[in-house]
């Protein structure tokens, strides 16, 4: 059995962590604001946010170059980083609550692969003509995968961790195979279009993508607080959650839809950015406990802040070239996942 220190370093003498957790909400909000400002101010173009701000304040017109760099390149990219980071982290937290174990992550259990298949399918089969089809079909891919995963991994209200992870491998492999077939029949333009899916990048962020993906990500995220009490109850098990008045079937259906919409839209605009969904909620559980009323909002804030910062690193570390952000999150996230796996080994039967 793990000791208290292993489970959480937070001080919990009276068992009530809500005050600490509320402080963490403000801290993370400040962290997100700071990271957004730094990301807006930094870049290889050498445009100064402060210079531009003082120009605007003194009534001077911004130069075309500054306007393009700040408003058309950096701003949508930072905003997209927030949306995608929040979507992936909250999807991870909701999936983990749904499966009642901390190893569920949209990337690991195949939900992202399903979304990629949907997005690539839309591009190759000609649906990309309409701007909405890519995120919507990514959502459908993610939705079908999540439902399949739940059906396979959960039996009589109990989820087997091993079955969930293995089913995730199978679903990922299957979705990748179908994606491979689509790539095979794609033409050159389409190939260029989805090369970035395999990498994961925020480099293609534009305002028009934000207008499309923004609502598909933001609406589910705004709905997640309504799931919080239900997800808390679900940790007692499906039957016991029902006994305290939670409508379990409705909760599960909503959770799956929310995960599919948020992950689908995130994958459609940024490709395979892995491990955000597992690292962020896990860190937050260590810091402030597993209460979903705070975990979900904190995951959104920390996920957004982390992805904005990771994207900043990608932009500046080998400037003027860029590193795909998926590489950065995987380099940090994969060892982190192994660490969680090692800690869990003693607690749950893998």
């Amino acid at each position: 059995m793990p000791t208290a220190e292993q489970i959480s370093p937070a001080t919990v003498c009276d068992g009530d962590r809500s005050a600490t957790t509320r402080r963490i909400v403000w801290l993370l909000g400040a962290l997100l604001a700071a990271s957004m400002i730094v990301a807006l101010a930094t870049g290889s173009a050498g445009t100064s946010l402060w210079q531009a701000l003082s120009d605007v304040l003194q009534g001077r017109e911004l130069s075309l170059r500054d306007r393009v760099v700040l408003l058309d390149i950096r701003a949508p990219r930072v905003l997209m980083g927030c949306l995608v980071g929040a979507a992936l982290a909250v999807s991870g937290a909701v999936l983990q609550g749904l499966f009642r174990n901390p190893l569920a992550d949209p990337g690991i259990v195949g939900v992202s692969a399903g979304a990629s298949l949907g997005a690539v399918g839309a591009i190759v089969l000609g649906g990309a003509l309409v701007v909405w089809t890519v995120p919507v079909s990514a959502f459908l891919g993610a939705w079908i995968t999540t439902i399949l995963l739940y059906r396979v991994a959960t039996r009589r209200g109990r989820t087997s961790v091993a079955t969930m992870l293995l089913a995730g491998i199978a679903l990922t492999a299957f979705a990748m195979a179908l994606t491979g077939i689509l790539v095979y029949v794609a033409d050159d333009t389409q190939l260029r279009d989805f090369t970035f899916w395999t990498m994961g990048s925020l480099a293609g962020s534009t305002w028009s993508k934000i207008y499309v993906a923004g609502p598909i990500i933001a609406i589910p995220l705004l709905l997640t607080p309504f799931l919080a009490k239900g997800l808390n109850g679900l940790t007692l098990g499906e039957a016991a959650a029902g006994h305290i008045g939670i409508r379990v079937q409705r909760l599960k259906a909503c959770a799956v839809l929310i995960v599919a919409a948020a992950t689908g839209a995130a994958v459609a605009v940024s490709g395979g950015i892995g491990f955000v969904g597992i690292v962020v909620p896990h860190l937050l559980r260590l810091a402030s406990g597993p209460d979903h009323r705070y975990l979900l909002i904190n995951s959104a804030l920390l996920g957004a802040a982390l992805l904005v910062m990771a994207d900043l690193i990608c932009r500046v570390i080998i400037a003027p070239a860029e590193l795909p952000i998926g590489i950065v999150t995987a380099v940090i996230g994969a060892p982190f996942f192994l660490w969680i796996l090692l800690r869990q080994r003693g607690i749950v039967d893998l």
Binding site: D16, P102, G242, I244
Partner: peptide
């Protein structure tokens, strides 16, 4: 309804394993 039933009866299962580190008070 589930909600109404929860108001008139409570159920204690034989064993309740929990996968996240809740404190006793939170449970």
């Amino acid at each position: 309804s589930t909600t109404r039933l929860a108001e008139i009866r409570a159920v204690l299962p034989q064993a309740t394993p929990m996968s996240f580190p809740f404190t006793v008070l939170e449970v």
